[in-house]
C-alpha cells in the first residue's frame, strides 16, 4: 500500500542569493569606476578634460561601429566578425579618395565638400560590400549550425585583411597620411576634429533611431528580429529586410571609416581586428541588439579607454586592449545582457 505523505510545511521561501549578490557586485563595480573617475578629475582636471574629449571623440566612432554589429546581431543572431575589417577597408578607401584623388592636405573649411563626397562613397562602399557578403555567403548558411556562418565571417575578415595588406592597397605597415589639422586645440584635442565627429555621427545615430522606430522598414526589422517565420507569414519580405539591415550596418562602418581616417590620419590593416573587439564590447555592454545600448556602450568604452591612456591614474595605452577585454569578459560572465538588454533564460 503506497502512502502519500503531503503536508504543507511552512518552510520559508529561500531568498535566491544569486540576483541579490549580483546587484550588490554591480553597485560595487560602478562605485569603483566612479571613484576612479573622480580621482582622475581631482588630481589633474586639465588632463581629465583632454582625455574626456578624446574619449567622446573615440566613443562616438565606437558607437557607429557598435551599431552596425548590434543591428546585424539583432536580426540574425550573427556576430559579423568581418565588420571591423570592413570598417578598416573603408578607412583606406577614404584615405585614397581624399588624399590621392581629391588632394586634401590641410584640413579646413574647404575640405567639407571632399568630406561629404568621401562619406557618400564610403557608406555606399560599406553597404555594398556588406550586402554582397550577406547575399553570397550568409544567406546560404541561415539554416546551418552557427559554427558555419561564424567561420565564414572569420574567412571574410581574413580576405579583407589580406587585401589591405597588399602593397598596392595599404601594405603591411601602418601608413601615415599627410593630412594636417588646424584650428584651436584644447588640452591636446583638436576642436575641429571633435566637431567634425559630432556633426557627422549624431545625425547618423538619430537617422538610425528614426528608421528603426518610425518607418515601415524599421517595423519590419523589429518583426524579423523577434520571429522570422512569423514575420514571413505576415507578408514581410524577410530576405529584403535582412539585406537592408546589412546595408545599414555596412554604411555605418563606412562612415566610421572616413571619420577614423581623418582623426588618426593613418591606416593600418590590423585596425579592424582591434577596433572590432572594442566595438563589440561596447555593443555587449549596452545590450546586444539594442541600438541605444550600442551608443551608450560606445561612449562608455571610449571614455574609459581614453582616461586609462591619458588620465593621471591609468595603465597607459599599452594595456588599453586588456582593460577593454577585461570589461568584455566580466560582462559576458556576469551580465551578458548588458545594460539595456533583457535577461535571457538560456542556461547551461
Amino acid at each position: 500500500m503506497a502512502t502519500l505523505v503531503v503536508g504543507g510545511t511552512k518552510r520559508k521561501a529561500k531568498v535566491r542569493l544569486g540576483p541579490v549578490v549580483e546587484r550588490a557586485l554591480g553597485f560595487v563595480v560602478l562605485g569603483l569606476v566612479a571613484i576612479w573617475l573622480i580621482a582622475n578629475i581631482v588630481s589633474d582636471p586639465n588632463r581629465f578634460l583632454g582625455s574626456a574629449l578624446v574619449g567622446l571623440q573615440n566613443g562616438l566612432l565606437y558607437a557607429l561601429v557598435a551599431l552596425g554589429y548590434t543591428m546585424v546581431y539583432g536580426i540574425i543572431e550573427l556576430i559579423n566578425f568581418a565588420h571591423g575589417d570592413l570598417f578598416m577597408l573603408s578607412t583606406i578607401v577614404a584615405a585614397g579618395l581624399m588624399v590621392s584623388v581629391m588632394g586634401v592636405g590641410q584640413l579646413g573649411v574647404g575640405t567639407i565638400l571632399p568630406l561629404i563626397v568621401a562619406l557618400i562613397v564610403c557608406m555606399a562602399f560599406g553597404g555594398f560590400i556588406n550586402v554582397s557578403a550577406e547575399f553570397l555567403a550568409y544567406r546560404r548558411l541561415r539554416s546551418a549550425p552557427k559554427l558555419a556562418p561564424l567561420m565564414t565571417a572569420v574567412g571574410l575578415s581574413f580576405i579583407f585583411r589580406g587585401i589591405a595588406q597588399q602593397d598596392y592597397v595599404n601594405g603591411s605597415a601602418q601608413k601615415n597620411w599627410a593630412v594636417v589639422w588646424g584650428g584651436p586645440v584644447v588640452e591636446g584635442v583638436f576642436v575641429y576634429k571633435l566637431l567634425m565627429v559630432i556633426v557627422v555621427t549624431v545625425p547618423l545615430l538619430l537617422a538610425m533611431t528614426y528608421i528603426v522606430s518610425k518607418t515601415k522598414v524599421g517595423k519590419a526589422m523589429r518583426a524579423v528580429a523577434q520571429d522570422q517565420d512569423g514575420a514571413r507569414l505576415m507578408g514581410i519580405n524577410v530576405n529584403g529586410t535582412i539585406s537592408f539591415v546589412f546595408a545599414l550596418g555596412g554604411a555605418l562602418a563606412g562612415a566610421a571609416g572616413v571619420l577614423y581616417f581623418l582623426v588618426q590620419t593613418q591606416t593600418y590593416y590590423d585596425t579592424g581586428t582591434q577596433l572590432g573587439l572594442i566595438a563589440f564590447t561596447a555593443a555587449v555592454l549596452g545590450g546586444i541588439g539594442n541600438l541605444t545600448g550600442a551608443v551608450v556602450g560606445g561612449l562608455a568604452i571610449g571614455i574609459i579607454q581614453s582616461i586609462n591612456e591619458g588620465g593621471a591614474y591609468g595603465l597607459g595605452s599599452n594595456w588599453s586592449q586588456s582593460v577593454v577585454f577585461l570589461i568584455l569578459i566580466v560582462l559576458m560572465v556576469f551580465k551578458p545582457e548588458g545594460i539595456f538588454g533583457r535577461p535571457t533564460t538560456e542556461k547551461v
Binding site: A137, R140, L141, A144, A148, P149, M151, T152, V154, G155, L156, S157, F158, I159, F160, R161, G162, I163, Q165
Partner: peptide
C-alpha cells in the same frame, strides 16, 4: 596567402 586562405575558409563553409 591571407586572401587565398580566407577564400578557402568561406568556400569550405559554403
Amino acid at each position: 596567402n591571407y586572401i587565398i586562405l580566407g577564400l578557402l575558409l568561406v568556400l569550405m563553409m559554403l
